[in-house]
């Protein structure tokens, strides 16, 4: 059975490698200094999608991302690895969204895509770190969810059998489709870019990226539909303005504090025998150990 697969993917700042230059003088985060990457667990989700596509010939994978126009970069990244197309959900009105407003916008876009069997996403994004968007999209679409998925074992009779990795063990569940499945980092790593696909898709562009191109160039895009990436606005997905962006977000960030260590007075020791022995004696004497 061929499947229509949607992969939710987020472009995120690489918070795993926050160097010194990532902090501004005033102590706030300098987002510009952090490379924007494909959210790691969304790549695990993409890999599950690619495996499903291999097992179910005729399946298609559409990437859906909400973000600024430059988020088109991750759509191309997905195409280079085997996805079939993608949509950037972008509009000033989406800015400042919390997870609820994000999932509302994504669910409107999925409704517009209309035909879908499985929606895959990462368990969690590495900037917001909430793991809330997947289940919220499922609820908004009125379909079941499977979170913490490690492997989609099989799809049969309109149902998916999924192995979940939980903090204390593993669980196997059967879920009727369509469903939202969010994938853990412990799942198979995403395959690398495929050189042929890079050649094929490196000029794939969204309408905003095509701005300023010559007439001739634009004609080429008409002849090669696969190179057209889509951009959808609030209106395109019939979203209710009061439910998107900052206005549609029940949670408000009241204050943000950068984490700075408070240096405390520490005793400096070497590995010399007498120093270690004195330390041990001190800890015994003050009842820390023993």
């Amino acid at each position: 059975m061929s499947l229509k697969i949607v992969v939710l993917a987020k472009q995120v700042p690489d918070t795993r490698n926050v160097g010194k230059d990532a902090m501004k003088e005033d102590g706030t985060i300098n987002r510009a200094a952090l490379p924007a990457i494909f959210n790691p667990e969304d790549l695990n989700a993409l890999e599950q999608a690619l495996q499903l596509k291999e097992q179910n010939p005729g399946s298609t994978i559409t990437l859906l991302t909400m973000g600024p126009p430059r988020a088109a970069e991750i759509i191309r990244e997905g195409l280079f690895r085997g996805a079939d197309g993608g949509i950037v959900l972008t509009d000033r009105a989406f800015a400042g969204a919390d997870t609820l407003a994000t999932s509302y916008a994504l669910s409107c876009a999925v409704r517009k895509i209309k035909d879908y069997d499985i929606i895959l996403g990462g368990r969690q994004a590495i900037d917001g770190d909430t793991a809330q968007v997947g289940p919220q999209v499922a609820e908004k679409l009125g379909i079941p969810q499977v979170t913490y998925a490690e492997q989609i074992l099989k799809i049969e009779n309109g149902k998916a059998t999924v192995k979940r990795r939980l903090e204390r063990g593993v669980e196997t569940v059967v879920v009727p489709l369509p469903a939202v499945i969010t994938v853990n980092g412990s799942a198979d790593e995403c395959r690398p870019r495929n050189a042929k696909l890079v050649q094929r898709y490196k000029y794939a562009k969204t309408p905003s990226e095509k701005q300023g191109l010559s007439e001739e160039c634009l004609k080429l895009y008409e002849q090669r539909p696969a190179l057209n990436l889509y951009e959808w606005s609030v209106n395109d997905v019939d979203a209710d303005l009061s439910q998107v962006g900052l206005a549609g977000s029940p949670t408000k960030v009241k204050a943000v504090q950068n984490v700075v260590f408070q240096a405390k007075e520490s005793k400096q020791l070497t590995a010399a025998d007498n120093e270690i022995e004195d330390l041990v004696k001190e800890l015994i004497a003050n009842h820390t150990i023993g």
Binding site: T15, D127, D129, K252, V253, K254, A255, V256, Q257, N258
Partner: peptide, 9 residues
């Protein structure tokens, strides 16, 4: 943000 900030919500 990967533990680099603390937010009050």
């Amino acid at each position: 943000f990967g533990g680099n900030i603390v937010a009050t919500i």
